[in-house]
Simulated scan of single mutants.
Amino acid sequence: MKIVFDFGGVLFRWHPPSFLARVWPHRAPDEDAGAAIAKDFFQAYTGDWGAFDQGLADADTTATRIAERTGWPRDEIVAVMNAVPQELQLIEGTAALIAELKQAGHTLHFLSNMPVPYAEYLESSHPLDEWFESGVFSGRVKQSKPAQEIFDLARSAFGVDASELLFLDDHPANIEAAQALGWQAWLFTTPETAREELVRRGLLAA
């Protein structure tokens, strides 16, 4: 079994409502306001941000498009975008789970919707090549989850049949897409529940 990790919300912190409440307090004074603003800012990772995720638009273009669409000052949007790397803090429990899986002899990969600048930041800040045998960033393949194309690209890159892949992701739509293509998949909520599931599947010792 090859185990495939999503990044945002799984290995690295990514929670837009609290993120926006921290970095944009004059617009998002609390998480409820942050959640509402996130819908316009990130568009559920479609639209302007989706193009950024897929490497079809660079950061400058994306900031301009968001400003034109929303009326928010462009410099404020740039400040939010520049703050994203620091939001992507390592989730220590997941890092420990990765170490345990590797110690148990499992091969790990990643499949992440991630714009190229943030992918480069993560590569420079963390030993991804030590943790994972290989991985796919959406910004580099010009496709993003939950589209079938990125799952097909990933399966080919990982060099195994879909049924041999167990995918951990925190978005139900991505889990459903993977399962429809024959992957095994499980909805990630916390490192602790993920470990329980891996034990249940016989991939880790209790």
Rank of each mutant, 00 (worst) to 15 (best):
T62N: 04
A59E: 14
I91M: 12
W72Y: 08
D58C: 10
L88M: 11
A83T: 09
I66A: 05
F41K: 02
Q89L: 14
A96I: 04
Q89C: 12
L88H: 02
E76S: 05
M81A: 05
E31I: 01
G93D: 11
Q89S: 14
A67Q: 04
T64K: 05
V80I: 14
A36Q: 07
D58P: 08
A44Q: 08
E68H: 04
D40H: 11
F52Q: 00
A57K: 03
L101N: 15
F41R: 03
R69P: 07
V80E: 03
I66W: 06
E76Q: 14
E76F: 02
K102R: 15
L88R: 00
F42T: 06
G34H: 07
G47M: 10
T64F: 00
A83E: 13
V78R: 12
P73E: 01
A79W: 03
L90R: 13
E31G: 00
W72M: 04
L90N: 05
I98V: 15
E87A: 14
D75Q: 10
R65K: 09
N82H: 14
G34E: 09
D48S: 15
F52V: 03
Q54R: 15
N82V: 08
I37F: 05
A104E: 14
T94D: 10
I98W: 11
T94K: 11
A35K: 03
Q89Y: 04
F41Y: 07
E31Q: 05
A99H: 13
A33P: 02
P73N: 05
Q103T: 15
I77L: 02
E87L: 05
D58F: 09
W72I: 00
P85W: 06
K102Q: 15
I91T: 08
V84D: 07
T70Q: 00
A33W: 01
E92I: 13
T70A: 00
F52I: 01
T64I: 01
R69K: 09
V80L: 08
I66M: 07
W72A: 04
D58Y: 05
A95K: 13
D40F: 10
T46E: 14
A95F: 12
D48C: 14
F52R: 00
D40L: 12
Q89A: 15
A99L: 11
Q89W: 10
A63Q: 11
T62E: 10
I37S: 01
T46S: 13
D32A: 04
A38L: 06
I98F: 08
F52A: 03
G55R: 01
D53L: 10
E92P: 00
A95N: 11
F42R: 02
A57F: 06
E76Y: 02
P85I: 05
E31H: 02
V78L: 10
Q54C: 13
A63V: 13
A57C: 06
A33T: 00
P85H: 06
I91E: 13
L90H: 08
A35G: 12
F41G: 04
Q103D: 15
T94F: 09
D48K: 11
